[in-house]
Design a protein around this nucleic acid. Sequence first.
DNA 1: CTGAAAGCGCTAACAA
DNA 2: TTGTTAGCGCTTTCAG
Lengths: 344, 344
Amino acid sequence: MTQPISKCTIKDVAARANVSVGTVSRVINGNPTVSREIVNRVTAAIVELGFKPNAAARSMRSNATKTIAFVVSDISNPLFAKIANSVERILKDNGFFVLFANTGNNRDREIKLMTLLDVGRVDAILLTVSDEKDPEILGGIKASRLPIVLLDREIDIDLDAVFSDHRSGMKKAAEYLWRLNHRRIALITGSLSERPGRERLAGFMEAHTDLGARFSPDLVRSGSLSEEFGFQETYDLLAHADRPTAIIAGGNRLVAGAIRAIRQLKLRIPDDISLIGCDETDLSNLLDPPLTVIARDMEAIGRAAGLILLRRLSNGAELKPAKVMLPTDFIIRGSCAELSGRAT
Amino acid sequence: MTQPISKCTIKDVAARANVSVGTVSRVINGNPTVSREIVNRVTAAIVELGFKPNAAARSMRSNATKTIAFVVSDISNPLFAKIANSVERILKDNGFFVLFANTGNNRDREIKLMTLLDVGRVDAILLTVSDEKDPEILGGIKASRLPIVLLDREIDIDLDAVFSDHRSGMKKAAEYLWRLNHRRIALITGSLSERPGRERLAGFMEAHTDLGARFSPDLVRSGSLSEEFGFQETYDLLAHADRPTAIIAGGNRLVAGAIRAIRQLKLRIPDDISLIGCDETDLSNLLDPPLTVIARDMEAIGRAAGLILLRRLSNGAELKPAKVMLPTDFIIRGSCAELSGRAT
DNA sequence: CTGAAAGCGCTAACAA
DNA sequence: TTGTTAGCGCTTTCAG
C-alpha cells in the first residue's frame, strides 16, 4: 500500500514521470491526446506517489465543486432523511457530494444559509423553504446565482421543483371516511404558507364539495407540521363534546402527536376514534391496528430531485424549469372504523 | 437589495474602494491593523458590489475547507439522522458545514470514500466503519491524513472516539427480565465485528454470570442490525417449541423487525412474549404497550463528536486521542410481563 | 503530442 | 497603516 506521507502535487508527479505538469493534468483528465507511453509513465508515478488531485484547486479553475447542498428544516425527520439518502445515492454515482444544512424552520437561518452557500461552496441547492411568501426569503433565492431545486414548495420564482400530489391522496382519504359513514372528520395539517398544507386542505375541501357535504371550519387545524401541534390539536379536538369521529393527521410528525394525545385520553383506535396518517414510517405498519395512510415514495422523490439537478447542471441555465409531480398512495389498513348509525 | 449580477472578486472591491487587494483581504479577515476610515470604505464597497469571498480560493490558501464529513452506513436510519442533526448544529455554530455520505455498509464504498474525501475536500471525518478488523479499511484509515472521529467503533488505530455504554444498559435489561422470572431470554443484536454488537453481548453474558444463570447459546443471535435480521431471528426463535419468554432486540431496526414477526405470529406483547428494545424511536413510546428500552441520548452523542472534532481541529495533531463514553439509560415501560411460575 | 506559461481568487510576506 | 507581490495546485491556451 502506498503511503502518502506528505501531500504531493501535480508537480511531484511531473518530476517523477519526467513530463510537464500540463501533461500530468491531461492524463488526470483523460485527455486523449496523450501517447500511451506517457500515460503509463504518469499513471505509474501517480500510483507510486499516491497522488490525489486537490479538490480546492480544481474547483477554483473549473468553477465547479462537485457538491450540492441539501437544505431542509430538520434532517432528523425520517422523511427528509430518506429523501437525503436517495439524493445522495444518485448524486454520488455522478461524482457529487451532498452537503447538508438544517434550518430548523428558522427564516433568518434560511436566508443566511443561501448567502453562506453562494460562495462557490456548492454547485446547486436542494431547498425546502419554510415560508413561500416571505419577501426576504424570495429575495435570497433570487439573489443566488446557484441552480435551485425546490422540494414540495411553490414560490413566485420559476424554478425546478418536485411535488407530491397531496391533494388527491387527501381527497381519497376523506372520501373513504365518508363512505364509512363518518360525518365529522377533522383535518390537522401544516401551515398554509407551505404547499403541503395548502394542498392537503384543498383535497379535503374538494372531497367535501364533491360529496355535497357541509364543511365544519373548527374541524380544520392548520398550523405546523410538528409533533407538538399534532398533540395539542388532537387533544383539543377530542376534549370537546362535539368531537370528530375521525381525524386525518396530515404530516408524519403530526401522526405521532395525534397518537400520543389519543393514548393520553385513553381512547382506542379505531373504536373511539378513526385515524388516518401521512407517510409510511415504522409507526404505520407496526401500530396495532396498523395505520391507514396517505403515503408517497420518498425514494422516488429523492431520485427525481437528483435527476433534475443533474440535468440542470449539465445542460446549463437555458433549460425551462422542470416541474415533476409524484403521486401519493392511499393505503387502507386498520385504523378506521365503519360507523353504523347515520350521523346526519 | 444588491443584485450580484456577475461574480465579483476581491479585485473589484479593491478598485471600487480605491485600495489594494491586500487591504480588502485584511478587512474581510478582520485584521485590526486597518484604519476605521478604510474599513468603512471597503465594507461599503463589499456591500454595494454584493461581494462574497470565494470559498475554493480561500481553502486553497488556508488549507482548510471548513467542512467535515459525516460517514455512516445509512443516514435514513433515524438514529444516525439524529446524530447528524446534532453534529450539524454544533459545527454550524463554528462556521463548519457537514458533508454526508452513505456507505450502505459496503466495505468497498467505505474505502473508496476515504480516498475520495482525502483530497482537500473536508477537514475531518466522522466515521462509522462496518468492520473493525478489515485490513483494507484499517489501511484506508491509516493512509488518510485527515483527523478522524470514530462513532461507536473500536479499532486498532488510536483515534478520537465516542462510545455508548451498551454493556451496562444491556446488563440492566437482562437482570430486569430475570427478576421478572424470565429464564429463557433471547438476545438479537448486530455483528460481533462492530462494537455495539460485542458490548451488548458482553453485557448480556455478564448479567447471566452475575446471576449464576445458565447461558443458552441458541438464544443468542448476533449478525446484523437490519430490520430483516430482526424479523427472521425473532420468527425463528418464536417458531420453535422451546421458545424464549423474552427477547431483547439490540438495535433500533431490529426492534421493528421483531415486532413485525411477533405480529405475524399473532403473539401478544407482553402476554405471550416480553420484549425489550434499544433506542428511543416513535415506536417505543407509541406502541401499545409502550416499549421498555435501553436508550441513549443521540443529541449528546452528536454534540460530543462535534466538540471532539473542533478540539482536534483547533489544537492540532499532537493531542492525545479523546475517548468519550456516554451512558445508556434503561427505561422500564410496559412491554415485559412478570412470570409467575418458576421456569427454572 | 508535449512543454511553457498565464492565471483562477485569495492570503501573507515583505516593502514602503 | 497600506501597497506589492509571490504563490496555493490546477487547467488551459499557445507555441513548438
